[in-house]
Amino acid sequence: MARAWKFGDNLNTDEIMPARFNITIDEKELASKVFCEIRPDYAPNARPGDVVVGGWNFGCGSSREHAPVAIRGSQAGCVVAASFARIFFRNAINIGLPILESPEASAGIEDGDEVEVDLASGAIYNRTRGTSFQARPLPPFVLKIASAGGLVKFLREHEIEELTA
């Protein structure tokens, strides 16, 4: 069972990964600083598979890919949010960080709840409260990137034209 780490609306990339720490591309080092200013308890206590739950407009602000990379490095199982900022959404898909958009789940999960997520179906279960939610499905062409494990892996095997084919 995974623990939910709950964050508020408009969580920006400076809060996810402060600019002064993203001078490295080392994933573990980035992960050690993720959320360090707003949730210093996250990095030392998050366990593999834990779920980051945000509100509206998750990941707004800078284009820095260091932000989703740091979350992936913390071994979070996925990010659930009411909505995602545009660049963060693309970045997460591109690096293979699973994200699920569900305003209902975002509202129905509190910090510390025990949750379970089925990435294939998009089903989100709140075991603490006995509730379940269904995330919005990804558009088909985005799914092509996501199922390849990210853009880099997609392009190793495919041509970019196949995305819109």
């Binding site: 890919e65 392009l155 970019i160």
Partner: peptide
């Protein structure tokens, strides 16, 4: 604005 992976990808594809 896009993330770094897409920049690396665009260097390859031009798209």
């Amino acid at each position: 604005g896009l993330g770094s992976s897409e920049i690396g990808a665009a260097w390859v594809t031009g798209k």
